[in-house]
Each structure stands twice: as structure tokens, then as C-alpha cells.
Amino acid sequence: MDEVQRPVFLCFKWGKGYPCKYTNILFRALSDLVTTPFRFICLTDDPVGLAKGIETQPIPPFRMDQSDWHKGMWPKLSAFAPGIAAPGTPVIMMDVDVVVLRDLTPMIDRLRAQGGLHIMREIPDTLPRLFPSIFGKPLLSNSSVVGFIAGTQNHIFETFHDKTYAEVQELNNDQDYIHHHANDRQCWPEGWILSFKKSLVFHFPVNLVRPIRRPENSYVVIFHGTPNPEDVTKGPFKRWGTPEKFGFFPVKWIKDYWARYSRDTDR
């Protein structure tokens, strides 16, 4: 399989937010579950500690001051810079704080068949979901898992790379920027990607008696905000979550996943 035919899973590691074990766990999970041969590329400012088999590239340079990067995870827009993968290559950009549930080949096949940019529709909070006429707001996108064909979305980086934070902050973050600038933006099918805290965790007091079950027909569970996946592997009696959605015990299927793909040598 040549370079264009072999799809790319792309992630980022920069700063101190997520140690390299998050990247390594994602790589090992994909290597175990995905049946289609692929390349795994990490754009990073520090490749030390990354597992063998992970390709590393420096984060393509852009103007924004590094002190502003975390105000929306703006480095993710450099995924659309030319040269990371050969034009025509299917690329799936993933956050490292996700749990992969099964073979992602159908996501790759969808990219090849339809082209465009595939992104998850933003999931509303509980009140907007239950009472949309009162609490609802326009839903944009969530950039935890973004699929595109290399070379077709370069303009996203080209319109961003020379901007300061002040020039883009009205769009709030990287995912809003992608939402408004992508060519042929499409949503992943409903249910393919779920949010741990918005889709799976119950509100108090139901959370105290209802277990968090592993989704049967989904491909990826994303974590955004609080908690992180590692947080829900600890316990018992280690509180995790938000004031309304929380737990005191590990979530077994996530704990098993974390243990299966971890190594003691990871930082």
C-alpha cells in the first residue's frame, strides 16, 4: 500500500497538558483494533517517550504567541498545513484523551467515499437537550475527531497561520474556526462518537445507582473538560467529574482499556 493509500491517524502533543502515555495509549489501541494498515503521526514539540512506531513531526509554525495556544487548542489548526501527509491521503485527527471502542475502518471508508471534512456535531448539555426552546442555542462542532482528505482543507491553515490571537478570538476556539471555514463540512453519523460526560454519565442522584455502560454501537468516546479518562480508572472512593455528574468508583471498561494499553515505562 503506497503512502496515499495508507490512511493517517494524526494527533498532537505539546506543553504539559497530557503526558506521552496518552499518545502511546491511543497508538496502541488503534494498532490493536484497526484492521486497515495506517500511519500514526504525532505533531509535537517533544518526542521523548513516545512509543516505537509513532512517527513524529514538528508542529507547523504559525504566528500566534504560544502563551495563547491553550485558549482554544489553536495548534490543532496546523493539522491542515500542507506537507504532513501526501495529498489525497485520508486523515483522521484525534485528541489523545479519547477511548477507541472498535475498528475505525468504517470511518476511513466514509472519508474515501465521500470526501469533505467530517466532524462531530456539538452535543448539547442536559437542559438544552431537554428544553431546547428555552435553553437551546445553535450547535456548532466538536473537533475531538476530525476526518478529511489531505490537501483539500489547506485553506484552514492558510487563513489562520499569520493571525494573532486577537484576530481570531471572536471564533472562540479551534473547533469553531474549523466549523466556519471547512469545505464540504459533514457530520459523522449520529452515535458513532459519544461524549463521556454528556452522553454516558448520569446526573445526580441517578449517577449513584446507575452504572456507566460501554456503548455497543459507537466507535469512539471523547473526553472534554472534566474528567479525563485516567481519572475514571482510579478508586474506589476517588471522586471524579463535575458537580452534577460525578462518581466515586472506577468505570470498569475504561479501567480495563487503560490497563491494556498502558506500559509502566510511559511518562
Rank of each mutant, 00 (worst) to 15 (best):
L111G: 02
R129C: 06
V100W: 09
D95P: 05
Q175A: 01
D97Q: 12
D103T: 05
D174V: 03
R121Q: 11
G151D: 07
H118L: 06
E158T: 06
T105I: 07
R129K: 06
L111P: 09
V100S: 01
I123Y: 02
D95M: 00
I156A: 10
N173M: 11
D174R: 00
E122F: 00
H118R: 02
G151P: 10
R129F: 00
A166G: 08
A113R: 13
E122I: 09
V98F: 04
V145Q: 09
D97A: 07
G115H: 08
P106I: 04
L101I: 04
S143T: 11
D174N: 10
K137I: 01
N154L: 04
L130V: 03
V100L: 04
I134F: 13
N142L: 01
T126L: 15
Y177I: 05
N142F: 05
A166E: 13
E167C: 06
I149Q: 14
D125Q: 15
P132A: 00
R102H: 03
R129M: 04
L140E: 10
Q114R: 11
K163D: 06
N154T: 12
S141M: 05
Q169C: 14
G136I: 03
P128N: 03
V99Y: 02
E170L: 07
L101M: 04
Y165A: 10
L171N: 10
R110S: 09
G116A: 09
T164G: 15
H161M: 15
V96T: 15
Y165M: 12
V145T: 03
L117I: 05
T159S: 14
L101V: 10
S143N: 09
E170P: 08
P124D: 08
S141F: 02
A113G: 03
A166L: 08
G147C: 04
I108F: 10
P106A: 05
K137E: 12
R112Q: 13
M94L: 15
I149Y: 14
N154E: 12
Q169K: 15
G116S: 01
Y177W: 14
M107F: 00
Y165P: 07
A113L: 11
T152Q: 15
F148G: 03
Q175H: 11
N173F: 09
T105L: 03
K137L: 08
E170H: 01
I149F: 13
D103H: 07
N172L: 13
M120I: 09
M120L: 00
Q169I: 09
Y165K: 06
V145G: 05
I156C: 04
P124Q: 11
E158F: 13
V100H: 06
D97W: 02
K163C: 13
S144K: 07
P106W: 10
Y165W: 14
K137V: 05
N173Q: 14
P124I: 12
I119F: 01
N173I: 02
N173V: 12
T105M: 08
T164Q: 08
E158M: 10
A150C: 12
R112G: 09
D97L: 00
D109T: 15
L111D: 02
N142R: 06
P124S: 08
L130N: 07
T159Q: 14
L140M: 08
G151W: 04
P128S: 06
N173Y: 04
I123R: 11
T105H: 12
V146Y: 06
F160E: 05
F157N: 05
Q114H: 07
T105N: 13
I134V: 14
D176T: 00
